[in-house]
Amino acid sequence: MQNDDATNPAMLWVLDGEALWGRRTGAADKACADCHQGMQGVAARYPALHSEKLVNLDQRINLCRTEQQKAPALQLESRELLALSAYIGRQSRGLPIDIAESEQAKPFLDSGRAAFNRRQGQLNLSCTQCHVGLAGNKLAGNPIPQAHPTGYPIYRLEWQGLGSLQRRLRNCMIGVRAEPYAYGSPEFVELEYYLMWRARGMKLETPAVRP
């Protein structure tokens, strides 16, 4: 379903993103397309450092909006922001995830790794215990995947819509009865960064379709 654009429902968002990409907005009356040519490879490099701060692709889009377009930031998980990140991500489909390692970024990576390994919630489970130690086994009837975020934003059949990696992680945290991190919080971006680093070299499939 995901590799055929005519049947991948996420393509409805990609087309919305394409339209938004070309639309002028904000006090600067600028469209994304006024400054950027293609965005090939960009989604494969996020999260990344931006003025010493770690930001994911959605946050980077919002920085462009507030700093360049002089427009209000889009709400995280909003249809518009997901559409833009799907449109940008689609342009990196097939390219290997390419997360830069640096001294400067190391604390963020370490922090994300620690979150991945930390037991949390009433069920007291870490990501590692299931997604590394038990990947391939079945939780109830469902195979446990290796937690490689190669296709975000994804069209999830359970959601019947598009959602970000952070929304998926939020589901997992609710599943172990933990209090989820807030959308856009440093904890979530660091975890996202670690997961993308862990999947480095794997090909992006954005926008993927998952159960």
């Binding site: 939780l139 109830a140 359970e158 589901n171 997992c172 609710i174 599943g175």
Partner: peptide, 11 residues
């Protein structure tokens, strides 16, 4: 139909 294990739900 299998039963989904981790449904998104309200807390």
């Amino acid at each position: 139909v299998t039963i989904a294990a981790c449904l998104e739900e309200l807390k």
